[in-house]
Amino acid sequence: MQNPSREEIKKVLDESKTIAVVGLSPNPSRTSYMVSEAMQKAGYRIIPVNPQADEVLGEKSYASLAEVPEPVDIVNVFRRSEFLPELAEAYLETDAPVFWTQLNVVDEEVFKKLTEAGRTVIMDRCIKVEHAILK
């Protein structure tokens, strides 16, 4: 598994505007909330994907990626690695060009499958940290 270069990741962050966050918790003490809040404050539109929540960070939450009614630039995943094969299938049904997983969320087979499908995949990296380093 080889993540894109820092230059490529910077380009992704520069060109992206909308991030669907799978597993975004409505609990402000959870990492997914803190990272998404920081990205929202940095100017990105955050779309929560969490069947347990109605709204997070002032945005309507959707039960699945399939229910998100607008184009998304990045699908950012805050779920455990064992959920990645199922999430990858749902992701391939979208037009989102980038599939991004947070720290310690890795699946080599999913990485291979999505890159072979022509998608950009970034795994095991915190989007907030990358944004802070590259902006």
Rank of each mutant, 00 (worst) to 15 (best):
Q2S: 11
Q2K: 15
Q2T: 13
N3V: 00
N3D: 08
P4A: 04
E8D: 13
I9F: 05
K10T: 01
K10D: 01
V12Q: 06
S16I: 06
K17R: 15
K17M: 04
T18I: 15
T18H: 07
I19V: 14
V21G: 08
V22A: 08
L24M: 09
S29K: 15
S29A: 03
R30C: 02
Y33S: 00
S36I: 06
E37V: 00
A38G: 14
M39S: 07
Q40L: 11
Q40D: 14
G43I: 07
G43E: 09
Y44T: 05
Y44V: 06
I46T: 13
I46M: 06
I46Q: 09
V49H: 11
P51L: 00
P51T: 07
Q52W: 00
V56G: 05
V56C: 05
L57K: 09
L57S: 11
E59D: 02
E59I: 00
E59G: 02
E59F: 03
A63I: 00
A63F: 00
A63H: 03
S64M: 00
S64P: 08
S64K: 08
A66I: 03
E67I: 02
V68G: 10
V68I: 05
P71A: 14
P71L: 06
P71N: 14
I74Q: 15
N76G: 05
F78G: 04
F78Y: 15
R80W: 11
R80N: 12
R80E: 14
R80L: 11
S81P: 11
S81N: 11
E82F: 14
E82W: 06
E82V: 08
F83N: 09
P85R: 05
E86K: 13
A88D: 12
A88T: 08
E89I: 05
E89V: 15
A90H: 12
Y91C: 11
D95E: 15
D95S: 15
A96Q: 12
V98F: 09
F99N: 10
T101M: 06
T101I: 10
Q102L: 07
Q102I: 13
L103G: 00
V105G: 07
V106Y: 08
K112M: 02
K113I: 10
K113M: 11
L114G: 14
L114N: 12
T115E: 11
A117I: 09
A117R: 08
R119Y: 12
V121W: 09
V121D: 03
M123T: 12
M123R: 07
D124E: 13
I127S: 15
K128A: 14
A132H: 04
L134W: 02
L134M: 05
K135V: 08
